[in-house]
Write a protein that binds this DNA or RNA. Structure first.
Lengths: 329, 329
DNA sequence: TTGTATGCGTTATCAG
DNA sequence: CTGATAACGCATACAA
């Protein structure tokens, strides 16, 4: 019988079962225990409704069965998807997730890494933007989309291949003059390679292209100006656009509508990420799809395999093309 | 100097500062401590890079500064939004979140509640569907959208008022024959009142309406049949639809397109939830917007105020109408 | 005000 | 194979 209202402990179970405390621990942890002892203990556990106290275990073993996920937010649907699949993978393996939102704040990225260590998490998965971020060496750490060093595994999709694929697709669909549009930080990370792949393919195939990259601080209206500059007699000189993310693609398409340019009749548009409306229905735009499920699986299995000596330092996963109404066909 | 590689403990700090262990604890917890002692301790803390170990504190205080959030997933954008705002509110208050995905699995809902207790979380916020769920009395518990009993606070938006608002809006926009469409469980919960509010308003205003509710197991195609049955000479007899969720509204609109019914010219559609594309851009459909931010704030402040004796048992927050392209104007 | 000592629930190390 | 017991890092009641 537990004393008062507080939850029963191993000592209570031991008393109830008439065995030693250590024996209870062994049963709970599935270690070798004599059959009749095991049964007595299990009966007592059921009797008292005992469940082990993770705080005690955490203190003793210095591990919490928890992984910290550091990510800007969960409003952006790509991040939501990532959070979802990573948490599912963790749940499968009986791990918990400690979710940390940075809102793109560089100081919070640092803070959360410290906080994660203080909370004795068993590892960290991080999607960050701070160019000066220092990755601790004494805790399993996996990054998404950013390569720091060979000792910090990075998981990303094949951004270069995706850019290449977009160019090839536009060409196949009959485009003869294209542009790549992107917005974003000056930070060099894996997604930066989307442009590189696109450019490489265009050069190789002899497909004309222009680049329009908005740096931090420049207003969105710069895109409007850029597009206007390429309109003659109400006709856009581009017939194919590859855009850094689906989100930006969608905004650009709104812009084109306002300018009376039809998509995909006048210009075909391919985005990047693979965002679906309501998370699981149609693709919002034609797009290069990131394999989020596989990315999540790779992150989790990598961060949990600290002891496995040989972890690749860059895990690159294949992308695919999906039709979303903004290309022909 | 810490022994070996493991993180410094309070004992290390005490030794370094030449004070007692208890004094370090008091400094760390911001209690009254003599000025020169405080300074010595803080210097030692900086010196060693000490951060307190939350496992030790958790074991000692039997509290973890963690709240469990039980929710189906984070793919559905409404859930993503909820997770986002709840986590933000928790971060503000220096609490962590333990995220639990049920995927609508009733047994997992139960499991997670037990697991949360085992992990000594300080409270639970839950959005569940299991009709037989038993809410533990010995832990602060807040539910979203479902009322269990006066002792379990429930946070929800004004679903009845939202239904009423939808009817009024459709009437204002000139509709003369309407229908309410919904899909979903047989479970009675707060969102069930969307229909009630709609019906009440229609009756009061003398606006004709029909109800079409899909029960569990019925295929989506039932909606197609329902709509077909109401088409004569290619013309839909309804000119206004109120639909249980934005997600369903969007699917219905796809259906209408296939049937060559134009939205909003032939029929105006209002959904419920307030989902925006990419989480923060345009509304996907015209809709009754749930005040997610306020819901999150209410959940968190309620679950954290266990000691405050008087918590209302139902917190009902006001909704608003937003134009999203599927109504006139 | 500061120091000392105990115990939170668990795992792990020893003896038996 | 089992029982007893010592940590783990911290907060706190009590003694100084």
């Amino acid at each position: 019988m537990a004393k008062g209202k507080s939850a029963p402990t191993m000592a209570d179970v031991a008393r109830e079962a008439g065995v030693a405390l250590g024996t209870v621990s062994r049963v709970v942890n599935g270690e070798q225990v004599g059959e009749e002892y095991r049964e007595k203990v299990q009966a007592a556990i059921r009797q008292l409704g005992y469940r082990y106290n993770s705080s005690g275990r955490a203190l003793r073993t210095d591990s919490t069965n928890t992984i910290a996920l550091i990510i800007p937010n969960t409003i952006n649907p790509y991040f939501s998807l990532l959070v979802h699949h990573i948490n599912c993978e963790l749940e499968k393996r009986n791990y918990k997730m400690m979710l940390c939102f940075t809102e793109y704040d560089r100081s919070r990225e640092i803070e959360f890494i410290q906080m994660a260590q203080q909370n004795r998490v068993d590892g960290v998965i991080a999607l960050t933007y701070n160019p000066n971020l220092v990755i601790p060496e004494d805790i399993p750490f996996v990054t998404i989309d950013r390569f720091f060093s060979v000792s910090v595994p990075c998981v990303a999709s094949d951004n270069f291949g995706g850019g290449w694929m977009a160019a090839k697709k536009l060409k196949e669909l009959g485009c003869t003059n294209t542009a790549f549009l992107r917005i974003g930080s000056t930070l060099t990370h894996e997604p930066s390679k989307r442009k590189d792949g696109f450019v490489s393919a265009c050069v190789e195939m002899g497909l004309p292209f222009e680049i329009m990259a908005l740096e931090d601080g420049q207003p969105f209206s710069e895109f409007e100006r850029f597009l206007s500059d390429h309109i003659k007699d109400g006709k856009l000189s581009f017939d194919g656009l590859f855009i850094g993310t689906d989100s930006l693609a969608w905004r650009i398409i709104q812009l084109l509508k306002k300018m009376n340019i039809r998509v995909p009749e006048d210009v075909q548009v391919i985005g990047f990420d693979g965002i679906r409306i309501f998370g699981d229905q149609d693709y919002v735009v034609s797009t290069i799809v990131q394999p989020v499920q596989e990315i999540a699986e790779a992150c989790v299995s990598t961060v949990l395999s600290r002891h496995l000596s040989s972890v690749p330092s860059l895990i690159c996963l294949p992308v695919s093309y999906a039709y979303g109404g903004t290309t022909k066909e």
